[in-house]
Amino acid sequence: MEKILEILEGCCPGVDFETETALIDNGILESLDIVMIVGELSDEFGIEITVDDLTAENFNSAEAIFNLVNKLKEEE
């Protein structure tokens, strides 16, 4: 989880990832942020995040992203 927060904060400094739960729904993350985050997560954890994984539910909070990464890691 710490690694994920570090990646998120590196991609979008200034966003409070620890408490925010509507990163997509409230438009806090923009499309280019998603590109950067998906790139870094894929490199860091050796996973493949596909377009079907890109849903609001999976990206609305750091915790949701954490759960997605874990799910994809198990599938590897």
């Binding site: 997509i24 729904d25 438009g27 993350l29 923009e30 499309s31 942020d33 998603i34 377009v51 079907d52 890109l54 849903t55 609001a56 990206f59």
Partner: peptide, 9 residues
């Protein structure tokens, strides 16, 4: 709308 570009599907 902008949000569509964060959710390509």
């Amino acid at each position: 709308e902008k949000k569509l570009f964060t959710l390509p599907s």
